[in-house]
Design a protein around this nucleic acid. Structure first.
Lengths: 244, 244
DNA sequence: CACCATTCTAAACGCACGTTCAGTCCGCGA
DNA sequence: TCGCGGACTGAACGTGCGTTTAGAATGGTG
């Protein structure tokens, strides 16, 4: 099994040890703040060997990206069901061991780049498929814009990962711990089951406001729609700044 | 008005020009990849002057952090309503001009650190207050765990900001643009109004499973609760890996 | 005027970094 | 046995970085 590489024996090949050490360092302290000499020391080799195997520090980074993409998207799973979700699940079930991968994964997604984009796209597709199945089975509400709903749910799902430091700090328990998971399950499912608002006033108002602007080229002020962190809870005067 | 500093005239004081240039560079390319000489060139001064005013590159970063915190949390607004939400709203209404601040803000939150923590805490408090008011007014459902719900809604609200590159790429329109906002408004509000699931089967299953584990010290496998990006959509067999 | 503090610069310093170099070791095919 | 290529190393190289230094303007104060 490919993912069993994750259980790295001490005597793995030097190139593999270098790559693992690099992922750990890059994930923990970032690419720029990590030196080739540090990685070499962690791997028990000379700095020159790192360059010998990977050409340059940047080549090493690319190799790490590619390795992690391959780890998350196993070839054989390309046609089957959710691949990344399952691997992530396995990682989160043993945060101690896979902390490095989780950190590196998060930085890849946030930083963008080739590998991060591929991972995000794959995650998005997995989420979209799940939502489709849920709607078909009658377990989930249909959406007026399924594509964007999938995008937003994907982004929301990644949010705790990207803000895991804040989450850990506020929660008081480490990210990925059973305690944290236990604490967050119910509020999450409550939100996804009952929603937040008790009626559709806000939604109706937004619908009405958007219909007024949909065909005009006029610029609307950022109508509490997209990225405003506090768009969501603001029900008393929801359409106050949607000026159609 | 304090925030009017944002409209920076060409002839601002050198120290201010340095700080603005630093925020722009740090936000766009990150702290490590930015050189003091670049900042100096942008500000039209010598590199030595940057050190003269801020002591060191790291001192400059701290000054940027503090300035941005002050910009987002105006002193006079300490007692009143949402301060950050309003400033962010203003920024998002003119993404062109405030792009630098938005980028720097996002990196601060993701990187943690003193300033990022303060901003996050403030955002969290604002969100929690809004939710309380919403519940009191009957516009929002009460929660079994209001504190965590506020945390999760805060995190979800910040998610598009942190993943703005992915969002821009998938959406095809720049983050913060009116088009992006228009596209994302309805799916968001639909989710917050109707939820995702059509019934409470998943929620009930989780409740039952959690009650079984709540007092035992036994470790539960990360029960689709916390950080799993794809926790949310997976209704067909929701409690399959919650092993009580 | 003299003084002093502040703002600012050009030049240089020293160091840590990624990378190169020259060479050693070792396994393997002929 | 030889030779060859890959794995690997210690030492050195060159560069770009943050920072220091010495001093030149500038402007207010007695």
């Amino acid at each position: 099994m490919v993912n069993m590489r994750s259980a790295r024996p001490e005597d793995a090949t030097a190139a593999a040890r270098i790559r693992d050490a690099a992922i750990a360092r890059f994930g923990a302290h970032g690419y720029e703040r990590t030196t080739v000499r540090e990685i070499a020391r962690d791997a028990g080799v000379s700095a020159a060997l790192v360059i010998h195997h990977y050409g340059s520090k940047d080549g090493l980074r690319e190799a790490c990206d590619e390795w992690l993409v391959a780890e998350l998207i196993e070839e054989k799973a390309m046609t089957a069901g959710p691949a990344i979700a399952e691997t992530m699940q396995r990682w989160l079930d043993d945060t101690e061991q896979f902390q490095h991968f989780i950190d590196y994964f998060a930085t890849m997604l946030a930083a963008g780049g080739e590998g991060g984009n591929r991972l995000f796209d794959r995650l998005l597709r997995e989420t979209a498929t799940m939502l489709e199945h849920g709607v078909e089975a009658g377990a989930m509400h249909p959406s007026s814009d399924p594509e964007i709903r999938a995008l937003m749910i994907t982004i929301n799902g990644l949010a705790p990962l990207l803000l895991r430091e804040q989450l850990t700090r506020v929660l008081g328990t480490p990210f990925g711990s059973a305690a944290a998971a236990r604490r967050m399950t119910l509020p999450t499912l409550e939100l996804y089951t009952d929603g937040l608002y008790t009626d559709s006033k806000v939604l109706d108002a937004a619908r009405a406001a958007l219909e007024g602007t949909i065909d005009t080229g006029k610029t609307v002020r950022s109508d509490k729609g997209a990225g405003n962190p506090n768009q969501d809870p603001d029900p008393p005067h929801p359409s106050s700044d949607i000026s159609p």
